[in-house]
Design a protein around this nucleic acid. Structure first.
Length: 460
RNA sequence: GCGUCCGUAGCUCAAUUGGAUAGAGCAACGGACUUCGGAUCCGUAGGUUGUAGGUUCGAGUCCUACCGGACGCGCCA
């Protein structure tokens, strides 16, 4: 054990590092660029980032990717919403359709759009038509839609940064992928995946576990969203990774079968695609359910929560639980900066250790050559647990369950606090041995937290 | 109705993937050295793991049915 303890202190943040494992493409968040990230997105974001950090540390070549849904109806709806909001600001008549995005960010965008495009741009009223019993706005100006989309992407990038999520390696645009549609369609046809019916083109996804076949080209010739996703996965698989991981919101689970079917029809191995679901977060506020709807504009912004409690506390809360089970918590609880927040518990353990070294006026390096022998059982237990980190990391990544690392850190902190209350360090006749053990524990906590994207506190 | 997932202490969640007496935190109660930082520690209490069967040496974990909940069942994304 002494040998490993010394290794922890010598290698510091490089302890338990591996290399040369599988190449993995990890796609996550991929929220529509039609609004800022809300608390539901945060769970997937934090989950994906923890996986990335842990995976990279233990030696996987993890490449991260965000798929930008910058085509289709939602983007059009965004442009329409900004246009209408601008007219309202300008004091012009507005007839509201049934569906449009609202919320302060739309108004902010509208004000900016007036600056950028000029007042005259918004003179023409929006025609409203009845479609399937719903009032729909007719809006065809791509310029405003795409401009608004780019603005939203900037906002999302800032939200990602605020969450302390490692910057993405790739941003892939759905819009740009459609130019490969003919090529992909040819492959599908050659593999007998498509047929025509009622003037539409269908994918035989029911041949591979899907409930029914799916339309990929509409009657008017426009490919559907699924077509875009097929192109995207074709593009992914062509890039030749060992494994592909997608993190989706659990509400998309019904989509898995058709995408896997498509991959098979493209001639690739669907087993290489692993889809992880991040369950919805059920939020309460003051004990009452907090209903989130993007269109209604009453959702909790990542930005606001981070401003309120900090990214670290939010990350810790999410990373203590499995990502694919339901999670419920009260927004008001995030404001409580007390013991009910386990991130304080772990951080406190670290801060205590640092405090001991401050009092002693030395650092970890100064005691790394102390030989550990004849350890008491308390000392042995604590050191042994701290040295489990490499196994925990391996396990947390291969099971895709970063919460195992978090719970391990809570265990380790608990073991330490207990030890601390029972055993004097400074001034004891085993001072040097104990300092070395605490140095190991401190290093491990710091490293573990950093792999969760949390910075260990020196003082609290 | 069909499909996917879930149901563990009053509350929020764990349980080394089928292993020994199901564990933490919060809430409750009782204690701890005038502190190497009490944001801590020690203890008490709290459970027939939704219900009923089944598989086996062994089930919170696997299978079946039922009860309860979430989500999906768009030519939206």
């Amino acid at each position: 054990m002494d040998e490993f303890a010394t290794k922890v202190l010598e290698e510091k943040e490089n302890f338990a590092k591996g290399e040369g494992k599988e190449k993995i493409l990890l796609e996550y968040i991929s929220a529509n660029p039609t609004g800022p990230l809300h608390i539901g997105h945060a769970r997937g974001a934090i989950f994906g980032d923890a996986l990335t950090r842990i995976g990279r540390h233990v030696g996987y070549d993890v490449v991260t990717e965000y798929y930008v849904n910058d085509a289709g109806r939602q983007i059009n709806l965004l442009g329409l919403s900004v246009y209408l909001a601008a007219r309202e600001i300008l004091g012009l008549d507005v007839e509201w359709p049934d569906e449009y995005y609202r919320g302060d960010y739309i108004k902010d965008l509208a004000r900016e759009a007036i600056e950028k495009f000029g007042k005259d741009y918004f003179q023409e009223p929006v025609k409203i038509v009845e479609k399937n019993g719903k009032k729909e706005g007719v809006f065809e100006d791509e310029n405003l839609s795409l401009w608004a989309k780019d603005k939203m992407l900037e906002v999302i990038k800032n939200d990602i940064k605020a969450l302390n999520v490692t910057p993405f390696d790739n941003w892939v645009s759905e819009r740009e992928l459609y130019k490969y549609w003919d090529e992909v369609r040819e492959i599908l046809e050659k593999n007998g995946a498509l047929y025509e019916k009622d003037g539409k083109v269908w994918l035989k996804s029911s041949e591979y576990k899907d409930e029914k076949d799916r339309v990929v080209v509409r009657e008017d010739g426009r490919p559907t969203y699924l077509a875009g996703d097929i192109i995207y996965h074709w593009d992914k698989f062509k890039r030749g990774y060992d494994k592909y991981i997608n993190i989706w919101g659990a509400d998309h689970h019904g989509y898995i079968a058709r995408v896997k079917a498509a991959i098979k029809f493209l001639g690739f191995d669907p087993e290489k695609l692993e889809i992880l679901l991040s369950q919805m977060v059920k939020l309460l506020k003051g004990g009452e359910p907090y209903k989130m709807s993007k269109r209604a504009g009453n959702f909790i912004l990542v930005r606001d929560v981070v401003e309120d409690v900090g990214a670290d506390a939010l990350r810790f809360v999410f990373l203590t639980k499995k990502a694919d089970t339901h999670l419920e918590f009260d927004v008001d609880d995030l404001n409580k900066q007390d013991a009910s927040n386990p991130s304080y518990y772990v951080n406190y353990a670290h801060a205590r250790i640092r405090s001991i070294f401050r009092n002693k006026g030395i650092d970890y390096d100064d005691i790394k050559n102390v030989e550990l022998k004849d350890l008491t059982s308390d000392e042995k237990d604590l050191l042994f647990l701290a040295l489990q980190l490499p196994y925990v990391l391996e396990d947390a990544f291969s099971s895709r369950e970063p919460h195992r690392l978090t719970n391990y850190l809570i265990d380790l902190a608990s073991e330490f606090h207990s030890f601390y209350n029972k055993n004097k360090v400074i001034g004891s006749d085993r001072e040097n041995e104990r300092l070395k053990i605490l140095a190991v524990v401190g290093s491990i906590i710091k490293l573990g937290l950093s792999l969760l994207g949390i910075k260990a506190k020196e003082k609290m």
